[in-house]
Nucleic acid binder design. Structure first.
Lengths: 131, 131
DNA sequence: ATCCTTGCAAAGCTTTTGCAGGAGA
DNA sequence: TCTCCTGCAAAAGCTTTGCAAGGAT
């Protein structure tokens, strides 16, 4: 964090630790609840500010659920990209990686002279348990 | 609409007409502004309720912008699926279709025994004008 | 006649912001 | 010391909802 010019503070340490120890995708408000449960040190405003900051600094990734809420998740390295399948019945999230899709995305972008920085792919449907 | 058990009312007619005549993606609130400019007949609450309804009935499609806001767009037929590139600088939206990507998605879903119903793919980056 | 829709206004949520005090480098 | 960061509380959006009146079938 220091290499990115960000100060290391208790709220930032706590939030990053909780985010990294969570296997799940979470909203800002869920993180705030975890912070409270953990007796950690951050107000609601700071949680919102810090998550946005950590996402911008590439410590967290963001995605949308189907309905417009921003979800955060830990990002272990900046190459750690994966996509999501979401079960519309139980809301379970399955992660997957497809290099083929990424390759085609690059081709599509190139065809439009578009400089690709990021992508989000979400597949919705029924998981094996809910079918 | 009647075939789907929905009543045909002035607000619904007006909103659908405006949505169909718009080339753009829009938020519920933008639609409300258009309704006012058009001297059309719908309150803000009705715009929200109607857009959700029309999307559910497959007259409109939904997508997210990068930051969690739901955007609507007209859906000419239920096969009319396309994906989006969004320029992070000027927010321009470029639509594209890739059957290759759709095919690979089907394969990925099948590999996880996932019954695919819908998908969203958003590419973010810089468009040709902003590069 | 029945019951679905609407408008209004209020409430509900989530997220952002101004400002003064406090902490990191 | 000099900024940057935080907490608080208020505000700012955006979206939903209860209820009574009105409209579609």
């Amino acid at each position: 964090m220091r290499t990115k010019g960000l100060r290391v503070t208790n709220p930032r340490r706590d939030i990053l630790r909780i985010a990294w120890s969570s296997p799940e995708h979470f909203t800002a408000d869920e993180m705030y609840v975890w912070v409270l449960e953990d007796d950690a040190d951050a107000s609601r405003a700071t949680v919102y500010r810090t998550l946005a900051l950590l996402a911008q600094a590439d410590f967290l990734a963001t995605m949308n659920d189907g309905k417009g809420t921003v979800l955060y998740e830990k990002q272990l390295s900046s190459d750690d990209h994966h996509d999501h399948m979401i079960c519309v019945a139980c809301r379970k999230i399955i992660e997957f990686v497809s290099h083929d899709i990424e390759r085609i995305q690059d081709e599509v972008a190139a065809r439009h002279s578009f400089k690709l920085q990021n992508h989000t792919l979400r597949l919705e449907g029924l998981c094996v348990d809910c079918k």
